[in-house]
Design a protein around this nucleic acid. Sequence first.
DNA 1: CAGCCATGTTATCGAGCGCTAACTGAAATG
DNA 2: CATTTCAGTTAGCGCTCGATAACATGGCTG
Lengths: 203, 203
Amino acid sequence: MPRLTLMTHVPAGQTWRSTEKAKTRQRYLDEAARLFASRGFHAVSIDDLGAAVGVSGPALYRHFRGKEAILSEILVGVSERLMAGLEATLAERAEPRETLLGLIDFHVDFAVSERDVIRLQDRELASLPEAQNRAVRTLQRRYLDGWVEVLRALRPEATQAELRVLMQGVFGLLNSTAHNSAVAKGTDVRRILADAAAAVLLT
Amino acid sequence: MPRLTLMTHVPAGQTWRSTEKAKTRQRYLDEAARLFASRGFHAVSIDDLGAAVGVSGPALYRHFRGKEAILSEILVGVSERLMAGLEATLAERAEPRETLLGLIDFHVDFAVSERDVIRLQDRELASLPEAQNRAVRTLQRRYLDGWVEVLRALRPEATQAELRVLMQGVFGLLNSTAHNSAVAKGTDVRRILADAAAAVLLT
DNA sequence: CAGCCATGTTATCGAGCGCTAACTGAAATG
DNA sequence: CATTTCAGTTAGCGCTCGATAACATGGCTG
């Protein structure tokens, strides 16, 4: 998209073209998440991606090493942001019950506001090559174990394996919003899911 | 696989070949569920399917109209079996709380013993053509609404939309077992998930 | 402002896919 | 026992895909 006027403000240290490129790159990531989530990774072609972004086909290779690299960046990105949320909540050093409520709020907010990437995280893991697959799984496991560690304080009698199964279940509950396509507006999905998760973990 | 001896007992009204064919067909369905669940529908070729069954490639077309027809049969099949379980439980005409506990037990048994097909049901829905996609979604919705109807008696103040969101969440919880790859043996996954679901629905 | 460089374009390649065609051999049939 | 049926085989067609090559054009740089 060529520039038509010279009125655009260019941030210090960055050229107009570099900011345009960054925008295009981000649009690739957003559109890819949307398309991958609705059709599946293998059912989306690079021509589809280009069309969604507004360029055509192979322009992708000016921004990513390949189609797989986009998926990889999406999945690693969401895992890292979840980890960041976990650590931010843990850093508040509240008591276990409060911490869990904080984690639930954070996760349900994330799941509701970014349904596509949440859905991709477990659905398209197998589409990644071995190396990045392991990286994502490691991050996911660290995230889960962070929750388990908090939960441990409330259920000292449960084994680590039992708590992991329970937490995996709670994630399934919280992430379920990624599956319901249309919900009658006015329905407070966040509250319903957060209350249900709290009922499982805090009773 | 040609017959080597004549000692095989052939059930009345069926030829030896027809029973062999039925067995092969079932192996296709089983192996396809396993492969589709682990790699994704589009990442499994008909040669892969043939190799898993013990025949090669295009032999598939002696049993199914195509690769898609296998996925379709799997997904419609699981939805119908879930519906059958729902109706069997409802037919006992117990009170709401008992009915819900029965539904939870049925569903968690199903999810634990048939992880692959459960996983496929929401992961590969988009891989079906429009017609069968609609058929599966309709069955899934009837299943969900069956639960909702029972739950309604216990929560008369909640709206239909709220109960649907809640139930979708509980299914996410119960189906989460399809995602944990390895669980320390001796861990009673069924009980953990069933208790958690009961905590959500019956408190 | 002249030369460079980056972000696009279109054309094309090689590989793998689902599926069909033509054929084979053993079971089923009467 | 002669004939038909049918679950399997291999060869190959047509198509789509991801990726690359060669080229175009307009912003960036000295």
